[in-house]
Simulated scan of single mutants.
Amino acid sequence: MARQKNLVRRHEILRNTFILLKKRGMENVSLQMIADKSGISKSLLQSYYPHKNLLITDIVTNFMTAVLKSLNVTDFKELNTYSKMKIFIYLILEQGIQDEGVERVVKSILSDRNSLDRWSQIFDNWLKDEGVKHDLGNDRQVQIGLNFIITAGGSLYIKRTELDLDADQISDIMVKTFMSTFLSIDEAKIDQTIGEAKSALQKYELATLTQTINEMFDN
């Protein structure tokens, strides 16, 4: 019973943190604000999350997991891993472009080194789950590649208005760079991968993912 209560409390804290991040961005949210919104003391909050970075890491994990789950829908599940990677990145960035609150969350992720590392780790674990990690090259090579495209892609996203880029173009750049520079995959395969991803995205309703993200701390 105590374990269930702790799980419910943790979800409430995460939900309230996500709401505050959407409204204010990470730099303008304090532990005290999260505690107040959750109706608990700061000391009790810190018994669950001693530091704000730990909270942000959990937010990142849940946010990315919600997006990854969307890749299991009928339109996506039969695609190759790199097409799914393109779609995964696109959906995260497009959510930020379409929703001002989610954009604050995305920018919070992109401006925090720990969050970027967590994104890279989630990607790495996902490649293992997809069963392709062993075909990609040595582990360090893949990790460097993931770190590079996430950091560089994040910079492009933040400067997208200045550079006149959208989520589709940025996700193209990130996946093409990973496949060509770090995995030495030939251009024809890359073009096929990107094309398949774009075709699948045309059939996908972004509102489906929006609802999933809004409800990700409800259960």
Score class of each variant (00 low, 15 high):
Gln169Pro: 02
Asn28Asp: 09
Glu27Trp: 04
Ala167Leu: 06
Gly137Asp: 04
Tyr82Val: 07
Glu187His: 09
Leu156Tyr: 13
Ile40Asp: 01
Glu205Pro: 02
Phe182Gln: 09
Leu14Val: 06
Thr81Val: 15
Gly154Ser: 03
Phe88Trp: 13
Lys52Pro: 02
Gly101Asp: 09
Asp186Leu: 03
Met216Lys: 10
Gly96Ile: 10
Leu45Ser: 00
Leu201Val: 08
Tyr49Phe: 15
Ala207Phe: 09
Thr181Met: 12
Asp164Gln: 04
Val60Lys: 02
Leu45Cys: 01
Ser108Asp: 02
Lys107Ile: 11
Phe63Thr: 00
Gly145Ser: 14
Leu79Thr: 11
Glu215Asn: 13
Lys133Cys: 06
Leu31Trp: 01
Val60His: 03
Tyr204Pro: 08
Leu7Arg: 11
Asn16Phe: 06
Met85Pro: 02
Lys203Asn: 12
Phe148Trp: 15
Glu215Ile: 06
Asp166Tyr: 12
Val106Ala: 07
Ala188Trp: 11
Lys22Gly: 11
Ser199Val: 14
Ile59Met: 03
Ser115Trp: 03
Leu206Gln: 06
Val8Gln: 11
Ser184Asp: 13
Thr208Glu: 08
Ser120Glu: 10
Ala2Ser: 12
Met179Glu: 01
Trp119Ala: 09
Gly131Phe: 10
Ile173Glu: 04
Glu130Thr: 05
Leu71Ile: 05
His11Gly: 04
Glu103Thr: 06
Lys133Tyr: 15
Leu79Val: 11
Met1Gln: 12
Gln202Met: 15
Val106Phe: 08
Glu78Thr: 15
Glu130Gln: 14
Lys189His: 12
Lys5Glu: 11
Lys23Ser: 12
Asp58Val: 10
Ile56Asp: 01
Val67Thr: 08
Asn125Lys: 15
Ala167Pro: 04
Ile87Cys: 08
Arg24Cys: 06
Asp129Asn: 14
Lys5Thr: 08
Ser180Gln: 09
Trp119Cys: 10
Ser155Val: 07
Thr65Gln: 10
Leu14Ala: 01
Asn6Cys: 03
Ile158Gln: 09
Val67His: 01
Met1Asn: 09
Glu196Ile: 00
Leu201Asp: 06
Thr210Cys: 03
Val8Leu: 10
Val142Met: 13
Lys22Pro: 05
